[in-house]
Each structure stands twice: as C-alpha cells, then as structure tokens.
Design a protein around this nucleic acid. Structure first.
Lengths: 111, 111
DNA sequence: CTCGAATATACATTGACAGGAATATTCCAA
DNA sequence: TTGGAATATTCCTGTCAATGTATATTCGAG
C-alpha cells in the first residue's frame, strides 16, 4: 500500500500510469511524451515496477511496459473503507465533543 | 491530486488518516496512538490539512482534527478511470505489437 | 562481426523532507 | 495573574530521492 502511494506521488510516474491507461508503451515513447531523458524514464519505470504497478515484456530491442491492475485494485479496496464517511455523512464530531466534556468532568471529580 | 498522494505516501500520515476514519481526534491522542512526539504530529497534520484531507476545529486548548471526504472522493474518481482496465481485461498488448511491427515494415519500405 | 538503436545501470550532485530539541502561543484554573 | 497543559512553529541535521551525465548491455541490420 505504501510503495504504491509513494510510487504514484511522483508527478512523472503518475503521468506514466495515466499514459499506460490507454495501452502499453515502450520506454522511448514514454520518455518522448513526458519530455524526459531516457534514463529517468527507465528509473521511474523501475520504481513503478517494484510497486507492481507495471510489468514489462521484452520485444527484441524494446521493452514494452503495461499497467498491472492489482495495485490499483488494492488502492480501491482501501478507499472503499472510507466510502461510508462520505456516504453516511457521519461525522461523530458532536459525539466526540461529548466524550471530551465527560472526561473533563471525570478529571474534576474529587474521589 | 498530487498533494493528496504525496500526503498519503508518508506512513505516519496514512496512519493518521486511518485513525480518523473512526472519528475525530485531538493532536495529543494522535501523537499517543502513533508513538510520535507532539511536534511531528502537528507537522504531519499540517501537511494533511494543506492537502485538504483533514480539517480542524479548536475547542479551548485542544484542536480536534477530522477527515474531509473531498480529496478521497477525488482519488476515487481518478481510480475509476482505470476501472475498465481490470473489468474489461483489455490489454491492447497484441494490438500494440502489431503496430510496432507495422512501423518496422514502414521503415523498411524503399519509396 | 561491426554499427547503431533501445534500454538499463552507476555515479555524483542537489534539493526536499522527516525527525529532534527548543521555544512561542493560547487557554483554563486556581 | 501566575502556572501548566495543549498545540504550533522554528532551527538544525541527516537521509533519501530525483536529475544529469556517462557508460554498459543487448539486439537486429547489413
């Protein structure tokens, strides 16, 4: 989960993932479209690969990279655990304020 | 989108967000549960706040932090644009290989 | 088997960021 | 009004990661 997020947190890598959403690409094409030097593209792809976000298939000289769905599905699953927050609109703030107040009173009690 | 991801990429901050999923908390409680010193907790909360992931409400001495749904909804929307990839299971790899091959041939043509 | 294209790796440099410690600020209670 | 609790801010330092440059590797064409 963490390696996925930090992989996506880098703007160029996020952009790569968005590029690959429309289909596989070679390293050179990715570097071209992002205006990156080839070594940086390779390095970013390595990080994405280690996070499981992409996989590579060699074809002669080229390396074709494509998306792997699993990490994005994981992210989706994680997100879904928050979904009730904006669906049920359940803040628990007032509840929490009451608890705070209670603990104040408890603190004031002289046993 | 980027500030959201880089905010969540830090393990302690991700943990804070998960804590707040169950309801609002004060800075001190967050620091306690994560085993952080108070200043680091405040700093992480500042980053989360700037990313719009949390909001704060002062109550006397304390600051109560709670989740804001919007950024997570944005992330969800972004993810959903990838959903067809693992639903339709459409790789486009063979398609892409054909294109590669065609461009090879085009390169070979003697006009 | 040699050349050039495509890609990966190594190395050095620089900048961002997380953690620690100290300090400032705000608020309530006595 | 003084003291202490809760929180934010500042400064310093070390570490990590992104970039640029150079080099190694692999492959097909001729």
């Amino acid at each position: 989960m963490n390696s996925i997020l930090s992989a996506l947190a880098e703007p160029n890598r996020l952009h790569i993932v968005e590029l690959l959403r429309d289909g596989p690409l070679t390293v050179g094409e990715i570097a071209d479209r992002l205006g990156l030097h080839q070594p940086q593209a390779s390095k970013h792809l390595r990080v994405l690969s280690e996070a499981g976000l992409v996989e590579m298939q060699p074809v002669a000289n080229r390396r074709i990279y494509r998306l792997r769905p699993q990490p994005l599905m994981e992210l989706d699953a994680w997100l879904s655990s928050f979904r009730r927050i904006w669906e049920e609109r359940f803040d628990r703030l007032d509840e929490y304020l009451l608890e705070l107040q209670k603990s104040e009173q408890k603190h004031d009690d002289k046993p």
